[in-house]
Design a binder for these strands. Structure first.
Lengths: 173, 173
DNA sequence: AATACTGATTGCATTTTGCAATCGGTTGCA
DNA sequence: TGCAACCGATTGCAAAATGCAATCAGTATT
């Protein structure tokens, strides 16, 4: 944790935390992709993060208090990364960021459906999602019985779009 | 505008826009500081941006459609930078970012009062602020008569904290 | 015993960043 | 008419970050 900051401005300090091209990508994959292991993050990364960058970011995010690391009981050298409350409360920011990107940037249809649903779900959906993340990562009791988790809902919507696009491509070809 | 993106994910694309240590700082100073000129941004920058970095970011933000540049009628070589709608709609994100930073990072009291007020004001205040920015930067008509602008309100609060801290320091010394 | 997988680390070339000095042109003032 | 101050940048250069490929030692599987 670096103690010398450029300024005490909240926006600046936030930028010092994830003002780079990879930190938020790692957190996104953990939050929305449910990834907990190094290899999952490495191979599952859509943007193709390099292993040294990933190792560096995981270390940095741990130093910053956004992640913790624990041993996986099933595999002696397997490590499980967990989100802290600090990282979980990024959900509303990620939702806004996704909503903004969806409006102004050349997003792909299948990758923006999650952002769309999360935007439409609004704060209630974000709260439910954060509750689920606290359960998964912090071992907190789950409020609702959770018939379908937010992540599963988003994932299902994503897969539906992918399937529908594949269908459309085959019928219009 | 680079056409080769790492992925079509909204969060990734947003990160490609301001996933660096300076872009959002420049936008913050324009939005909250009301700065429109190169020198204002250069000398007024709390974090001490270098002139080449500033020039590069202004150029990049223009290419991305976040800023426009116009001649200042009062000074032949003076340029006025304006926010586009794309940049103005970042206000809610900046508000959330400030709120998050205020909770989790070592913010200074005087620099976080703006974030606190903006958080408490919520979406209605953000909308009013965005309306004012559209008036300032895009020449749009102003809805409300605007007794006190949001920026002036935030600035006054900032100065009040600074004054109160100076007072406290002198009386406790 | 062989193979594949675990979380990384190393070396190295390329790219980006940050700092300091400086540029040519404009403006205000004496 | 000179001249200093200011305008938006640009240049040169060192340092840091990034990205890629190869590799590591320990662990599990077969």
């Amino acid at each position: 944790m670096s103690l010398d900051h450029r300024s005490g401005c909240p926006i600046n300090l936030s930028l010092e935390v994830f003002g780079d091209r990879w930190s938020l990508i790692v957190l996104r994959d953990m939050i929305f992709g449910g990834r907990r292991h190094f290899r999952e993050l490495l191979n599952g990364s859509m943007e193709g993060i390099a292993s040294n960058i990933l190792a560096d970011r995981l270390k940095r995010l741990m130093e910053l208090g956004m992640l913790t690391k624990a041993d996986d009981p099933s595999h002696k050298q397997k490590a499980i990364y967990s989100l802290t409350e600090m990282a979980i409360t990024l959900v509303p920011i990620l939702a806004h960021l996704g909503a903004w990107g969806r409006v102004w940037l050349p997003v792909s249809e299948e990758l923006s459906i999650r952002a769309e649903l999360l935007e439409k779900g609004g704060p209630p959906m974000w709260d439910k999602f954060m509750d689920e993340l606290r359960h998964e990562h912090l071992g907190m009791p789950l409020d609702t019985p959770a018939d379908a988790t937010v992540r599963a809902t988003l994932q299902a919507a994503y897969e539906a779009v992918v399937a529908s696009k594949a269908l459309g491509a085959s019928t219009t070809a």
